[in-house]
Write a protein that binds this DNA or RNA. Structure first.
Length: 778
DNA sequence: ATAGGGTTAG
């Protein structure tokens, strides 16, 4: 065994530091190997060590070696794999064995036999074991074998093993080929050890383009774009020509920093080096332009690619979705089918997300058809997206059917369906499904909790939080936000403060969403002072949502004037949004501040803000509340389309302004536009009847509530009817109504009826009602 | 030999 020759050769090529690594590796390998032989020969065990999880660290070796301290190494024998050998032990054993071997030379096993053993281990997935055997064998292997090892180390993320393979390669190969060392760099990068990768890069006596690519790719994939750019500069300066691969990584980094100018320069270089026809680089350029926010250039780039592949299409669809242009995303997805390229599952999911954001049920269903036609309905990504699409298009039953037909349901599809039921207000069904889930994570718990919060079912939400606390260990920012919503919903300032403490202790307060929820909680719990203090404390990281929350809490405290003052301060820091205007208008409405309300309206118009349905509804509400019905109607008429909520707002607004006739006229217009009235609308109609004294029409409406409008009569409708008959002295109708009522009347209802009986001297009904009231009291 | 996109649930 020519250890000294190895020594010499290695010495020549590698610097001091690497030399120690190699030589120690060699020593340990030899020692381990001979111990193996030795122990096997003796057939006796040694003391057992801890062994597990102890890594052999290349960088640590010199240090330990100098101090002659114990270095844990991976033993090789199967039987004694848990043994621990210190370096001192190893050295002495080695010495002894070397002497022994000199006296009694032993043939090392044949390379082929060792390869066979290693392959057996690799097939069993035992990479550690395989590496140990490789490491212990004091002879060079074929290069392809090393390459295989590096590949496996990458996929297992086995850094220790990768280091061992590199050591072995350097020790026993006269001239390790550059490409193998490039593989080593890649392995280190895949194991997230950039230090090892860069160290090896620095120490390599010769490099090729692949070496640079390996390092650049490493920095790019681990998210260090600036290092990528400086390495790229070094590379070109040292005269190495960048290849397609180099540009792929550089472009990925350009996308990560979203810098248009830089990206354009790189684009120029790509063209200059003649890589324009490369579909991968083309797709990357599409991606980069889109990430820089220039969809027009992205689209142009897309059209320059002669044959876009599935990835290219995926990029363009996804980027349109990110840019908020869901229509174009769906359009591009449909264009894909005029080519021979089949979309990937992620592309299907992106297109379906785009459909749900557009509520484009027709298109979503067409995509569903394609999915079935291509036999992709069992793909978990696609099927979960389908469930979501149906749910977001208000087709809960269809979503649920897709879920029921699913062959294999994973955590995501379960969570999707639970969330679907929870979000559409069916918390009982959602809970049933939730309890049936085979496994849950924090997202599933949050989905269920969000359902309770959305439906204002506070006591269920509280019970659920207690359950959640016992069942899962860690909550996240969404859970905390929801818990704050619960505190805000029940105005529980104390619990809110405790959650604040938890948030602070766990560092969640730096999350803007959590800190905004906190602000909202303080505002809704009526603690304006705490809200203001917290708002000031977040001055470093607050956003416009924080401002809106603060404005809302001013509005909550009937301080519309101060809200407006805050609004002008807000504009020094951030731009208002539609929520800002909604909040301000609500504050004006609640304080009947017509002057301020008009100011806001003027501001919206002057600054050219698009008035959406929600803002328009807020304006209508404000004008109604401020008794400015004409303006309200004018705003309503300015809408391109009107939903049931804005109609309800104006109809109820008319009633509050004692203008029942207008309310009924608007109702006719609403029906003519094809908007379906709901229970609120019908309450408005009944109130209009009360205002106008339309007893017969009111009765007719009430009687056709469920038959004509598909609305179940609620308490408030009964209230309206009682008020209608009582106020207009229709005692026959009132008596008939009270005696045939299918629900149990409330005490205020009975008192109202009794009042009417007394006023109209209708004692027969009065006695009946008195009895009922007495029954109530005792 | 190496490169691009994407993670559907709250």
């Amino acid at each position: 065994m020519s250890l000294s020759r190895q020594f010499h050769r290695v010495w020549q090529f590698w610097n001091m530091r690497r030399f120690w690594v190699v030589i120690v590796d060699a020593y340990v390998a030899l020692a381990a190997f001979f111990v193996f032989i030795f122990v096997r020969g003796r057939g006796r065990g040694r003391r057992r060590g801890k062994g597990k999880g102890e890594g052999f660290q290349r960088t640590c070796v010199p240090h330990h070696f100098g101090g002659a301290k114990s270095i844990p190494v991976k033993p090789i024998s199967n039987k004694y794999r848990e043994e621990r050998i210190t370096l001192c032990d190893a050295a002495s054993v080695l010495k002894q064995l070397l002497r022994e071997e000199n006296l009694n030379p032993r043939q090392p096993p044949q390379t082929n036999a060792v390869i066979q053993t290693i392959l057996t281990y690799l097939e069993a997935g035992r990479i550690r074991k395989a590496t140990s055997v490789l490491f212990a064998f004091p002879k060079s292997f074929p290069y392809s074998f090393y390459a295989l090892f590096f590949r496996l180390c990458s996929s297992y993320g086995a850094i220790v093993e990768a280091r061992k393979v590199e050591s072995h390669l350097l020790t026993f190969s006269r001239n390790p080929p550059i490409f193998l060392l490039n593989r080593a760099i890649e392995s280190y990068a895949k194991c997230h050890c950039l230090r090892d990768a860069h160290e090896l890069f620095d120490e390599m006596p010769r490099r090729d383009g692949g070496t640079w690519n390996a390092l650049i790719t490493a920095y790019s994939q681990l998210g260090f774009p600036n290092q990528v750019f400086s390495l790229f500069l070094c590379m070109t300066r040292s005269g190495v020509c960048p290849s397609e691969v180099t540009f792929a990584s550089v472009l990925a980094s350009c996308g990560a920093v979203s810098q248009l100018l830089l990206s354009k320069q790189v684009h120029g270089l790509v063209t200059k080096f003649g890589f324009c026809g490369n579909v991968i680089l083309g797709s990357s350029l599409v991606d980069v332009y889109a990430k820089c926010g220039v969809m027009i250039d992205a689209r142009r780039m897309f059209h320059e690619i002669p044959q876009p592949n599935a990835v290219t299409w995926n990029v363009i669809v996804r980027r349109y979705l990110d840019a908020g242009d869901a229509r174009e995303a769906v359009f591009m997805f449909s264009r894909m089918f005029s080519t021979a390229v089949q979309p990937m599952n992620f592309t299907f999911s992106n297109a379906l997300v785009a459909c749900s954001s557009l509520s484009a049920l027709q298109e979503g269903m067409q995509i569903h058809g394609v999915v079935v036609k291509l036999g992709l309905q069992d793909d978990n990504v696609i099927s979960s997206s389908l469930v979501n699409m149906y749910v977001k298009c208000d087709k809960l039953e269809d979503g649920s059917r897709v879920f029921d037909l699913l062959g294999s349901r994973d955590l995501v599809s379960w969570t999707s369906i639970v969330s679907a039921y929870a979000k559409s207000g069916k918390t009982l069904e959602a809970r049933k499904l939730f309890d049936k889930m085979p496994e849950r994570n924090v997202i599933s718990w949050n989905a269920m909790l969000a359902g309770y919060v959305r439906c204002f079912e506070w006591s269920e939400a509280l019970d659920f939080v207690y359950l959640m606390r016992n069942e899962i260990k860690y909550v996240d920012h969404v859970t905390l936000g929801l818990m704050l919503n619960v505190s805000a919903g029940i105005s529980d300032h104390e619990t809110g403060k405790q959650i604040h403490g938890y948030i602070y202790r766990h560092g969640f307060h730096l999350d803007i969403r959590v800190s905004n929820a906190l602000l909202d909680m303080y505002g809704k719990c009526g603690n304006l002072n705490s809200a203001k203090i917290w708002f000031n404390q977040m001055s470093k990281w607050r956003d416009r949502v924080s401002w809106n929350a603060l404005l809302a809490s001013y509005g909550h405290h009937q301080l519309s004037e101060q809200a407006l003052t805050m609004f002008s301060e807000m504009q020094w820091e951030t731009k208002p949004s539609k929520y800002t205007f909604g909040t301000l208008l609500l504050a004006c409405a609640n304080t009947f501040a017509l002057y301020h309300g008009k100011q806001i309206h003027g501001f919206i118009i002057r600054h050219g803000f698009q008035i959406d349905t929600i803002m328009r509804t807020a304006l209508v509400y404000m004008y109604c509340k401020c008794r400015c019905l004409e303006s309200a109607i004018e705003v309503l008429k300015g809408a391109v389309s009107r939903d049931v909520i804005i109609w309800n707002t104006i109809i109820l607004g008319c009633c509050h302004n004692h203008r029942g006739k207008e309310a009924l006229e608007l109702f006719v217009m609403m029906e003519a536009e094809g908007v379906k009235p709901d229970h609120v609308t019908l309450k408005g109609i009944l109130l209009a009847c009360v205002e106008e004294g339309l007893v017969d029409f009111g009765t007719e409406c009430f009687n056709s509530l469920s038959s004509k409008y598909n609305v179940l009569p609620r308490l408030e409708h009964y209230n309206c009817m009682i008020e209608l008959y009582s106020r207009h002295g229709s005692m026959h109708e009132l008596e008939n109504f009270m005696r045939t009522m299918t629900i149990e009347p409330t005490l205020p209802m009975l008192e109202r009826v009794l009042d009417a009986c007394e006023k109209n001297e209708w004692s027969r009904l009065g006695e009946y009602i008195t009895e009922k009231i007495n029954a109530f009291k005792y």
